[in-house]
Structure formats: structure tokens, C-alpha cells
Design a protein around this nucleic acid. Structure first.
Lengths: 136, 136
DNA sequence: ATACATGCAAATCCTTTGCTCACTA
DNA sequence: TAGTGAGCAAAGGATTTGCATGTAT
């Protein structure tokens, strides 16, 4: 439904080709953190001719434009999410692999302070917690 | 000077072979976050017969024993540091690639609280800040 | 029309593994 | 000596790239 990634592409002056539009939409619709293979799977459901190489090239391009963020989250494959998403941090259940997102504005502010004291201007903060569910 | 990694290996019942001892010492002496290639380079300075495969096997083994921690820090290659090191978080200068370590006990405590509220018991926290030097 | 994107297959990079021989406990 | 560990080379998985062709602007 949401076509914000596609819009961001246009705002960044990117040529909107068929494959790119499909990939942008797949990304906009994702509520999880798909890896490139999974993005390719979803994209080829819409247009089976889209190649894996194109998906790789597209996520790299969008990352360079700041539209997407790459996450590592333990596994060997890179995962992607829209940079504009609200919840930036991740809680990874080591047993099931489930990823819960959360915010921590206060912790974030503290970290920025620490960085500033070291003479750094921070543009990206990555926070990942790994553990296991106890309750619930 | 410090041989603590070697000691931890022994405490974990690991057989101390020549190559393993060299690698353990290289790790103990490292104050940075070497990748496997760099560890291999340092180890072969001591004993040129040590193979890259052995370095890979050793870091994996030590990670499984909890002696080492793997870090991703943006680049494609995994980096390692002793788990016992004081400073757990990283500030990465995107321009130079320099990594500064820091602590943030309060932020850490906050994050643990958030996780607990979600029913998680956290065992690892990764915090990485990416940015660039402004002053200094 | 021009510059850029795509598909395909081959190449690359990092890491793991199979096998045989060597060594530690 | 029994059981691992090591070295080498080959395999593997993820990602990138060269090249000829297609396409958006």
C-alpha cells in the first residue's frame, strides 16, 4: 500500500525501472527484516524475470542514498529495512531467531553525548540485544 | 605480556598446541580489533607455518567457549576481541575506519530494563555508533 | 539519443571442510 | 596410544562484476 520507498527513489533522482519499482514496493511493504534472498523471492513473485544481481545492486544503491539501512543481526546474510522506520533497535531471540524492534530514546541521547565528548558527530546508531525469552 | 587468553584456554580444557598458543598470545596482546587475516599475519610472524584455516578454526573454537567475541563493525570481515575486555561498545569513524571503544553502563542498564519488560533475558548487547570526527 | 539499469554467468571474497599426517595429554 | 589438531587444497556461500542488451528520461 505504502509507496514511500518508491517516492524516496524519485526524490533522489533515481530512474524508476520496472525491477526497481517492484523491489521498492516489496521493501515498502515489508514489516520484517528480509535478507537479499528473501527480497528476491518476494520480487520474483511479482515479476519472475528479476535477477538476484539486480536486487543486490538495488539495495546497495538505496543504502548509499540513505533510503535503506543494512543490519547484521547475527546471521551471515545482510538484512535490510527502511531507514525511516520508527523502531531502530533490535532484540534478537537466539533460540527462535525472532526479532523484536524497540526504541530507546534516552539511551540513544546518552550515547550521542558520549560520542560528542569524544569529538564525534554520530549519524548512525546500531543497538542489538541478544538473549532468550524468559516469560510470555 | 598478558597471557590470559592462553590461561582461559587451559581452564576450558583445550589442548595447547603450538599454533594455538601463538594465536592465543597474539589475541592477548591485541589492543585493537583484528580480523582473521590480520590475526594470521601476526601469528605467522611468530611461526610462519601457521595456516589461515587454523586461525579460523581457533577463533571459532574460542568464540564457542565464550573466550572471544565476534564483532561486525561494518566491514565484510569478522573481527575479534577478548570477551573479558572492559570496553564493549564501539565508535566507528566512517572516514578513517578508526574504532574507539567506550562504556555506557547507564545506557546498558536501560536497555536491559527494556528487554526485561519484553520478557527477554539479555546475554549480549552490541552498541555501535558510526559517524565522523568533528573536532580534535 | 544518451546514460544508466538489467540479466546472465563468471569472478571474488571470506569462511568452512575433507583428508592425511602430526602432536598433546 | 587415543583422540584431537594442523596443513593444504578444494568446496561453499554470499556478494560483486564484465559484458552485451534493454529502457527511462
Amino acid at each position: 500500500m505504502d509507496i514511500s520507498i518508491e517516492r524516496l527513489c524519485i526524490e533522489n533522482g533515481l530512474k524508476m525501472t520496472g525491477p526497481r519499482r517492484v523491489i521498492a514496493r516489496v521493501l515498502s511493504e515489508a514489516t520484517d527484516h528480509p535478507d537479499v534472498d528473501e527480497l528476491h523471492r518476494r520480487a520474483t513473485r511479482v515479476d519472475s524475470r528479476i535477477s538476484l544481481a539486480t536486487v543486490y545492486r538495488t539495495v546497495r544503491l538505496l543504502e548509499s542514498k540513505g533510503i535503506l539501512s543494512r543490519r547484521d543481526l547475527g546471521s551471515r546474510r545482510a538484512r535490510y529495512e527502511a531507514s525511516g522506520d520508527k523502531h531502530h533497535f533490535h532484540l534478537v531471540d537466539k533460540e527462535s531467531g525472532t526479532i523484536v524492534e524497540f526504541d530507546a530514546p534516552q539511551a540513544e541521547a546518552m550515547l550521542r553525548e558520549i560520542a560528542k565528548a569524544q569529538g564525534f558527530e554520530v549519524d548512525t546508531i546500531k543497538i542489538e540485544l541478544f538473549g532468550r525469552r524468559t516469560a510470555k
